[in-house]
Write a protein that binds this DNA or RNA. Structure first.
Lengths: 236, 236
DNA sequence: TCAGAAATTTGATCCAGCGCAAATTCTTGG
DNA sequence: CCAAGAATTTGCGCTGGATCAAATTTCTGA
């Protein structure tokens, strides 16, 4: 049984698009280890706009995203969404255990239909010990989150709306860009409202930015889709 | 030789105000371990507004603050300071190693004259292994930083200037408040400019907030000093 | 003790971007 | 294929807060 098959078997799902052993946390494991890993895993399919977990929930599991994209963020009392980070395939999420938290501090929502594996948080310390890549991957995940959040704070504190939207588009393009004939397309459904939730502005302002840039040929966007044609022409 | 003396000896400084063994990272160590710890440590005195390290510097050391307060943040191309977090005595800082970074991502500046110990980053993994409290303290430190940064992002993305300033004052009061006859004083020099660097606004707007609140008896502030008289009366 | 620097206050003006409203376009389930 | 919902665009007026300017207060070092 090869590795992809072992995942597939665990998930009763012949169509998994990713090979978990290719992901850093579980690199360099024996087939026996991988089988054990998969035996303990739970497979989650989550439809677009549904959540894997909500802020405040007890942190019962930690996850790895196999396919799809997630928006992770908070909701304020008056209903504003604030999206703090995106998760792309191969990344861990729901890793409250990594920083001593008993419950999730954010909500993880599928931006496109999502497929993930999870393990009970009780296994966290064991994974940290047993799987060499796991500790490493955790460090890297924390590092990229912290620097992303720092960037976001600087941006919110000092940049104008246009620049914040531009930076966000560029980051998404790098994280989840797919080359097309006339530019790089962001590979999941992305509304004006989504972008405004990421940048602390309104969907109206985002729409105005995109319209302006489209007139200049910098981007091409349609409903839920954004293609970046001239990345270097985006402001600042 | 008691513990305080062992620190003092290491620093050729008879006046250290803190006992490092009382700090979580080094709790429950033997005297022999503490002496070894201190033998490897470097003592740093840093004047107000001077830095322990600057963003981009190679992360050669990690630190524990013994006395004073630090502002940790970034400077943008056009000179804006953005302060992301404060460090109070007993906390670790400069812990780039905890999240897989080769260089410091922020500048650590003394808000009041600062006293800290540092160790070479090469010792990080050894400390994580040998000192039971160290791993624990690292997790907690990462956790509180991440949640603080999340709060800050939500605040910047959704709250008005007044609320952001109020939240910041309250947080500083909790972290570094000293009771006085007519309220809780923030225990380090804090200018209007400093507060605006923390809240993504201008010193003028901060001054207007404080003036208004002072008229209502909510705060009492003078040059570089802020006393909170009625915390519950601050907006939101 | 005094001069200059640093910090604060306050007024006046202006504009980026929010809130609101309405029309339009795109998508989907029945 | 159509109806209803979802997403987007665009115009307009208003305001929170930035920017500019200047006076005042507080502190520090010579």
């Amino acid at each position: 049984m090869n590795r992809i098959q072992s995942i597939a078997a665990a998930g009763e799902d012949g169509l998994l698009s990713a090979d978990v052993s290719a992901f850093l946390p579980f690199a360099d494991l024996s087939d026996a280890q991988l089988e054990e890993l998969m035996r303990l895993a739970t497979v989650h399919h989550v439809d677009r706009n549904k959540t894997f977990f909500d802020e405040g929930d007890a942190a019962e599991n930690f996850y790895i995203l196999l396919d799809g994209y997630l928006r992770v963020g908070r909701t304020t009392q008056d209903g504003d969404q604030v999206v703090m980070l995106h998760v792309v395939p191969g990344q861990m999420f729901g890793i409250a255990k990594a920083y001593d938290s008993e419950s999730y501090t954010m909500t993880a929502r599928a931006a496109s239909d999502g497929l993930a594996l999870s393990w009970p948080s009780a296994l966290w310390d064991q994974f940290m010990q047993d799987y060499p890549g796991f500790k490493e991957a955790t460090r890297k995940a924390l590092g990229s989150r912290i620097t992303d959040m720092q960037d976001k704070i600087v941006s919110l504190a000092t940049a104008q709306v246009e620049q914040r939207v531009a930076h966000t588009i560029l980051r998404l393009m790098k994280q989840a860009g797919k080359p097309t004939e006339d530019g790089v397309e962001i590979d999941f459904p992305l509304t004006r409202q989504d972008i405004s939730d990421m940048t602390g502005t309104t969907l109206h302002s985002v729409s105005r930015c995109l319209s302006k840039w489209q007139k200049r040929g910098i981007v091409r966007s349609r409903r839920r889709r954004v293609v970046v044609c001239q990345p270097q022409a985006l402001p600042a």
